[in-house]
Amino acid sequence: MTSTPYLPPDRILEVRDAALQAGLADPSVRPLLFENIMPAYRGTLPLVPAPGRQLHSDLNEMNRVERLVDTRVPLEIWLRNAIAQTSEAAPLAVFQRALDDVVRDSSGEPDVLTGLDLPEVKEQQVNRDDTVPFGFLRDGDRAGAAVARVTVPPYEGGAPLQPNGSPHSGTGWLITPDLLVTNHHVVNARTGGSAAAAPDDLLLQARHARARFDYDTDADGEAEDAAVALLVAADPDLDYAVLRLAEAPSRPVLRVARRPLTVVSDNPVAVNIIQHPSGLPKRVALRNNVVYEADERDLRYFTDTRGGSSGSPVLTDDWRVVALHRGTKWVGNASFQGRTETFVNVGTQLAAVLGHLAATSPAVHAEIEAAQQE
């Protein structure tokens, strides 16, 4: 599906030059850069005899494709693969900046740093015990069973959006046996800069959304999706949506924190994120996501990799959800643990989501409270 390009021409040239600098124009590397991109799509790309021109052609072609029928964004996957194949700092920074822009635009993520002054953070590790009980792994496996990949097809005017009708993807998790939490912008199913879905189209998109549990490896890709019955609550400002599944899957629910997480100065809190980045099989970021700032509404945390898919649960070491991950941005002006190339993530405090539900959807809030007490 073609759409407005993700990156302007000068940024594509910048990525091309970085790839040339990193040695990624070598024809033997090209298959590695297209790993996890649909073979049927790869076969449609023009072949050019000169390696540098081939690289430029590939980038231009992918830049015009919003997403493929498998919900994945080819340029995003290519950039992730380029990062995996690169060790030099300068081209790596170019790829990471481009990846951040493409991911945020393709998912409709809000810019999480708008209006924020980013502080410098240097975590003190001396005399800090960073070990966890062995049961942490067992409980984490159980928590992961409640997390699903969510796909949402866009609608406009009551009909599937054409020509860009491929589903958008994110992450969701069970807060009751049949209520799934994700981001509002996941259900909105629009790329950055597009107008928000009309209210009736938003409801249609929710009813046609699907949740795939136990999608842990590529071999699980053919697993049956759970159908969504309706959207029961949502708020674009806090960026949450609550979906009711047509049938309750037989699996545990995630426990949630009812009070906002607070951060004591000079004592950052490590959190864990279970996610389906880019619609790919489930991954987990363990304890290398450090919360450096918190208020009643938001958590802000650093990590040296992308934090994960929109809608992921942000969990403390007891696997209790403290926030709903809603956005990630690569920044080059922050220092964390001796690194200056890092990501800043933002999540909405679950206490803020529950408070909003109590005020605006009391029946849904009561249902969640009852399920959390079982």
Rank of each mutant, 00 (worst) to 15 (best):
R30S: 13
L68D: 11
N345R: 00
L238Q: 11
G338T: 08
D237V: 15
S87L: 02
T342W: 06
L161T: 04
L261C: 09
V331E: 06
P160N: 07
R210N: 07
E341V: 00
A90C: 03
A285D: 06
V264R: 11
Q124A: 12
L174Q: 09
T182V: 05
A226G: 05
V344S: 08
S278Q: 12
R72H: 13
L204Q: 14
G165F: 01
Q205W: 02
E369Y: 00
S278N: 14
V242Y: 05
A82Y: 03
L99W: 01
H356P: 02
I175Q: 07
L47G: 03
P362A: 01
G157M: 02
D130L: 12
R244D: 12
W319A: 11
I368C: 00
V284G: 07
Q162S: 12
D129C: 05
D111E: 13
V69S: 13
D304A: 10
H56E: 15
Y240D: 11
L350C: 06
R80N: 15
D17Y: 00
V102C: 06
V322C: 09
D304F: 09
A211R: 08
R283F: 02
R212S: 12
L357D: 04
R258Y: 08
A196G: 00
P177V: 05
V147W: 05
P39L: 04
L280D: 15
P27H: 03
A146Q: 09
D200M: 03
P236C: 10
V263H: 10
D214Y: 03
V344D: 05
A351K: 04
Q96T: 14
D216Y: 08
T114V: 08
S265R: 14
T217Q: 11
L324C: 10
A93H: 12
L7R: 07
W78M: 06
N183F: 02
V263C: 06
T191E: 10
D201C: 05
V242R: 08
L116W: 06
G308N: 12
L75T: 08
N36M: 05
T340W: 04
G193A: 04
P8N: 13
R259W: 01
T131G: 13
A22P: 07
D239F: 06
V322F: 03
G221L: 02
Q373A: 13
L354R: 00
L243R: 07
T305E: 10
E61K: 07
L354M: 06
E76L: 03
A146V: 03
P281S: 12
